[in-house]
Design a protein around this nucleic acid. Structure first.
Length: 367
RNA sequence: UGGGGCGUGGCCAAGCGGUAAGGCACGAGACUUUGACUCUCGCACUCGCAGGUUCGACCCCUGCCGCCCCAG
């Protein structure tokens, strides 16, 4: 089989390519450069990564290419990312990036190269359920990345391969080391995919105008000033700069009053306003291509509201293009704009974007 | 300008003769393909200022400065 491997310059995708090559496939390594900008220190990480991809491919003995989807990334991912921040929400660009770039634009590029499959170094597995392709959680529960992949759909699943999804991180590093790959001990990358680790406030300020305003308690008492609502997210503690006031406990963001440009803050990690046992999600996406249950029919599942969060027992009811998720245990800082991903056993069903936390039509943090 | 109290790092706050607790904030790491949370370190050669007593003072004495309260 001819297989295109999306290579980031990291250990996971490098080992993915290695394993496919060993299995006798015709492997082509392709590096994507989707963000042409240095970080605040003038460092261009992608140069370093591209160099690593070349070194790894040379070591494995496969051809390699570099493609640039910066335009697509900006138009299909980054624009939406900024729009969400303008709305006072907290988007997850990597979820969109997988759907729009890696498993869309990049997938088409692979097909143009005559690829039968597109492989990546994601921690996830592909299986089958009811005659359809299914996305399954990774063998390494600690590294599972299905949270970022829940929007990709059947077509992508039919073409995708995740060669390292059945391995643990230590196993992957061991394989890389034995094979003499130059990236065997390279640190895992973090930060927004393709953009990298940034001083978030500084980074955002370069794209969105800041509108300072008051920080107020739920009772309306002004306790400080904020630099712009988009710089804060629900449940956030650091960066408020109002320590020492009040009863001395830590302050957390518990809401955003968009209409009045006020950030609502409260003291204490146990603030009831930070917890909610339910949420409404929108923009539903199901990996099977169709909903897991009929409209209005409640079903049990497990869910997570953020990457690496332990799965939470929940019940879901779909109604049209939205769904209501109720958790057995109240969840901390359910944040509009973030993804809620549902599971049943090893199977990742899909999910949606949090619109509001709490009861429908009741208190929300949209403002 | 009679009486009483107070002044410790950005904020709050222990210490009350033996060589500056703690919390919040902040900074740096760790964790992490979002944003966060969390964790671990770090953070006053100095205690409003100036003198004095003492082997030794943030803690005792004197003066000054600045707040607060009660009286008038």
């Amino acid at each position: 089989m001819r297989i295109v491997v999306g290579m980031s310059g990291g250990v996971d995708s490098s080992v993915a390519a290695l394993l496919l090559k060993r299995a006798g496939h015709e492997v082509i390594g392709v590096f994507m450069n989707n963000w042409e900008e240095e970080d605040e220190n003038g460092v261009c990480t992608s140069e370093r990564d591209w160099a690593d991809v070349r070194a790894v491919c040379a070591r494995i003995g496969i051809p390699y290419y570099s493609v640039n989807f910066a335009k697509e990334y900006y138009e299909r991912v980054f624009t939406h990312f900024l729009d969400e921040y303008r709305r006072g929400r907290t988007p997850n660009p990597d979820v969109l990036c997988n759907r729009e770039i890696k498993f869309s634009a990049f997938l088409r590029f692979a097909e143009e190269l005559g690829a039968d499959k597109l492989a990546t170094g994601h921690f996830a597995r592909i299986g089958e359920a009811n005659g359809e392709y299914a996305l399954l959680r990774a063998a390494d529960e600690n590294k599972d990345q299905t949270y970022f992949l829940y929007q990709i759909g059947q077509e992508a699943l039919s073409m995708a391969m995740f060669p390292v999804g059945g391995l643990t991180k230590p196993e992957i590093r061991a394989i890389a080391r034995e094979a003499g790959l130059p990236v065997s001990d390279k640190k895992d990358s973090t930060g927004v995919c393709f953009i990298g680790e940034r001083n978030f406030k500084k980074f955002l300020s370069g794209y969105l105008p800041a509108q300072p305003g008051d920080m107020v308690t739920p009772e309306g008492k002004v306790v400080g000033r904020h630099d712009g609502l988009m710089y804060y997210t629900l449940g956030q503690r650091r960066g408020l700069g109002i320590g020492g006031s009040g009863d001395g406990r830590r302050w957390f963001v518990v809401g955003k009053d968009i209409a009045n440009n006020r950030l609502i803050v409260q003291q204490g990690e146990d603030s009831p306003l930070l917890y909610s046992a339910a949420c409404e999600i929108e923009d539903l996406r199901w990996l099977a291509g169709h909903a897991p249950a009929a409209d209005g029919e409640e079903f049990a599942c497990m869910a997570r509201l953020r990457h690496r969060q332990p799965l939470q027992a929940a019940r879901a009811v779909i109604h049209g293009d939205r769904a209501r998720i109720t958790f057995d245990t109240p969840q901390r800082a359910i944040t509009p704009g973030q993804a809620t991903v549902l599971y049943q056993g090893e199977l990742c069903l899909g999910g949606g974007t949090v619109d509001t936390a709490g009861s429908a039509g009741g208190r929300s943090y949209r403002g």
